[in-house]
Design a protein around this nucleic acid. Sequence first.
RNA 1: GCCCCGGUAGCUCAGUUGGAUAGAGCAAUAGCCUUCUAAGCUAUGGGUCAGGGGUUCGAAUCCUCUCCGGGGCGCCA
Length: 586
Amino acid sequence: MKQQLAPLLSAAVATLQADGVLPADQPVDIQLERTRDRKHGDFASNLAMVLCKAARSKPRDLAEKLVAALPESDVVTRVEIAGPGFINFYLAPAAYHAMLQQVLAEGEKFGRSTVGAGKSVQVEFVSANPTGPLHVGHGRGAAYGATVADLLEAVGHKVHREYYVNDAGRQMDILAASVYLRYLDLCGESFTFPSNGYKGDYVWDIGASLHRKHGDALRHSAEDVFRDITPDEPAGGDKEAHIDDLIARIRSLLGEEHYRETFDLGLDSILENIRHDLEEFGVCYDEWFSERSLTESGAVDRALERLKASGHVYEKGGALWFRSTDFGDEKDRVVVRDNGQTTYFASDIAYHMNKLERGYDRVIDVWGADHHGYVPRVKAALTALGDDASKLDVLLVQFAILYRGGEKMQMSTRSGEFVTLRELRNEVGNDAARFFYVMRKCEQHMDFDLDLAKSQSNENPIYYIQYAHARVASVFRQLPEKGFEWNADNGAEHLDRLTESHEDQLIVALSRYPEVVESAALNHEPHMLAHYLRELANEFHTYYNAHQFLVDDSDLRDARLNLIQATRQVIANGLGLLGVSAPDSM
RNA sequence: GCCCCGGUAGCUCAGUUGGAUAGAGCAAUAGCCUUCUAAGCUAUGGGUCAGGGGUUCGAAUCCUCUCCGGGGCGCCA
């Protein structure tokens, strides 16, 4: 609806520019907003106040000239100048009626747009290390990333959803070692499990499947495994050195082939678990991108070569450093360690280089806020490579802080003390979980009280919205019982019968939907949609309580059915974008 | 010490990128089911927008300083 008004203002500005009232050389940004209060009309523009300086005129005087210059339009019934110089527009009922019919005609496509048409965007999210099942901390990134991706798609972008699999590096070696040690335990060896190993039950399961496949064939005595290993921390040693020694020992005892097998068994079964978990959560990917493949394809070497060629790396203390301080980072960063191994950062440079090479117009990373310090160095690397770092948007999602019994819970994959995403979904349901995670803007810390989510799940706002949808469905179920039929065409002809203020407010709320979707998508703020849906449901419930839909007057009845059917449609569309179901009965 | 995020009603949070009288939910109080689902509706109370200074027609919103809370600052990933 906004698109119908903006040209009118542009035309008025053009007229005043031609008349010399406004300087002709300045481009004018047309600002048009929904009014907060219906008494101020439907839309308001602050144009006169913004331009009054350039016009050397009082805001209200300029507003009058602008209004006088507005072209005729059948969308607008009245234009008013108010307050310090606002220009308020009152829309014709016909404009709203046309919108209602558009909802019914377009169905699930209503609210989609083409503002992003022709633009491709890659969204990488979750990307949790495959060292354990997803926990509730990952859930927020999953729900947020998936919703941002869906929203961008809804406004016309071509979206590529991607999970970066950290299938290389020390954490994965620690997992492999943990799996092997559990296997040894199942073989009957006895020893103290390293304090730095992965202790979750799932590691036992993987160890068990290794045992099922090989029996005792891979068994080595605990004595051989632990001989001359740096003692663990509880034993007065160093837990990091302890686990590193164990990894090296296990690797040499097993041989490369069996070590790799153990490693991949851990990786594959956890990744499969994660994939399955996300799928059930309604989160799907176009690509699972392997970190290891970056090394194998030579992308890491190529990235380092390019940095060397452009003179942004140097050697110090046997290591290779990237001079990120040249690009505003607070200190330089190591890309190749003195032991010859490339760092995680080197992989990430190669990965982001790869993303841009694939030609996306925009690249979005959804990261936990704890990685915020990492943003400057990645952008620095892209700039150093000669790429356009401004194509990369890093969206930082603050932690969800878990509370149970009023106590803050520590989440640690290593210790195995965490609540999995699956447990959460089982307890509060997919819909509530998806909705809850995106209810707050991502920069906001989120208090996730498990007891509240579980014990009072009926008070979750999601039910309020779904209930509105179910109520409409229920009304339509009642139709035949009362001997009525819905004639949508007749309803369309009598929309002018919708004269109640509750109807008016509901219609206005519906008309906002496309604007909300667009704004939520372009700003990467799904919570705007969540809040909007609550307001829409509120308008509907109020209407429902105030008026009967299934009245004897068929013209009025059909018009009302058109209205509530459109409401049902918009709620379903909005919930769909949030990954939440819209049930017909509750 | 430096960096990021937050501070708005008793609690949890919105506030349309600087607009008109700062809004919801929960909690509290009082009402509404022989009528399409009461997981609903109506009404009431509740505020120094953390605090000071600045920018301008206009500030919860932008700038600056201070205070408070969370997180991050590795040749880990």
